[in-house]
Write a protein that binds this DNA or RNA. Sequence first.
DNA 1: TTGACGAGTGTACGCCGTACACCTACGATC
DNA 2: GATCGTAGGTGTACGGCGTACACTCGTCAA
Lengths: 227, 227
Amino acid sequence: MTRQEATRTQRIPLNRDRVLRAAVALADSTGIDALSMRRLAQELDVVPMALYKHVANKEELLDGMADAVVGEIDPPAAGPDWQRVVRGRILSARQVLLRHPWAVRVIESRTGPTPAVLAYLDSMAGTFRDGGLSADLTHHVMHAMGSRLLGFSQELFDTSGPSGPPDPGLAARHPNIAELAATAAHDGGSTVGGGCDDQFEFEFALDLLLDGFENLRRQGWTSARKA
Amino acid sequence: MTRQEATRTQRIPLNRDRVLRAAVALADSTGIDALSMRRLAQELDVVPMALYKHVANKEELLDGMADAVVGEIDPPAAGPDWQRVVRGRILSARQVLLRHPWAVRVIESRTGPTPAVLAYLDSMAGTFRDGGLSADLTHHVMHAMGSRLLGFSQELFDTSGPSGPPDPGLAARHPNIAELAATAAHDGGSTVGGGCDDQFEFEFALDLLLDGFENLRRQGWTSARKA
DNA sequence: TTGACGAGTGTACGCCGTACACCTACGATC
DNA sequence: GATCGTAGGTGTACGGCGTACACTCGTCAA
């Protein structure tokens, strides 16, 4: 059956939402690098240019994908303890990003905040404010969290993926790293980044920051940099 | 003078170093997106394929560029106060990355740590260890710092570049963000990210983390996650 | 009946990275 | 000095990319 015939019989018309969903699914299954307009069109059984009736260009497609992912993050739980609310939501965001590993790079590469990100940040700021942090402190706190707000910790390199054979000279050249790797090898990981419990590392830093924020709040911290 | 004639007269032969330096310069001046093998070859007055005698492919070129940039970071200062040593070096790294804004994305996109990054991390780990942090704590501390070790804070979106006209409905839709923007508008910035003192934000988070680490060290903190 | 319009099509252009075969100048070897 | 291996630069070509632009065609309002 050619595309023409399919048109005549039954054909769900394309729309922006179907395009975005297909794009997310394709990125999930084949990786973001394999996501091209042509490949996506093929997936939707449509000619590449058809996509451009629904998204202005590839950048806007990526914007939409980022928003779709951010939209998956749980709404904030209710509760009197702002640290718990923030913590829970950020860990939810982290789960979302673990489901869509490509999304980290896509979100980072947006030049401006997309609507869903903006809404998320606004909501998160509200949680801090409701928790008793001043607007001033909230502002700096959100900066300090950076991308951690969205659940990714920005490691220096990708620890997943196949790591080559361990470099025998590495320990000699980098004794400190070797030592750290040794302490981290609690379950057999042997490479630099391997054998780490990413979830533990993420929560370690998160809690350190949240506790630091709470301390500043209690002290009535205020930035002293006004002109 | 054609390329041929230039060859006959005087022609500095290409080598890996010249290629990398030219690539860094080109990225500095025209941005990383405009850096293509073809464009780089043109800059060196050479045919594109000539580059492949000196770098295996574009990825390896980017690896080399990342290493070149990381190599610009100051060596650690001497001193008894580990917090000051770490702080100073990270702020040096930050200056380097401000000189080469494209480097953040390039470093992030490497799939594994390049030699210079590895050396830098090893040296940094040594500073923590010399400061009295246990190998265990040092490990988690380095994870907690993440890319901040290299001087970038991973903001959620790029606050440089031209921001469009301020959205009049934004304040209504996102009251909390609007409030934060208002408190931050100490020198006339009007957009969400604008008007922030990036250096202040960076040091705020950095010091918060360093102080947190020092507290853990004093308490003799140890991870309780062993099996 | 017509005619505007929205959705999908087809073709084409100029980029990109790079495989592969080639040439050419040079330094070592006999 | 003739020979030859080799390193470095060249030229051509391929497949893929994003997307501009002109088109067709089915639907529906007037």
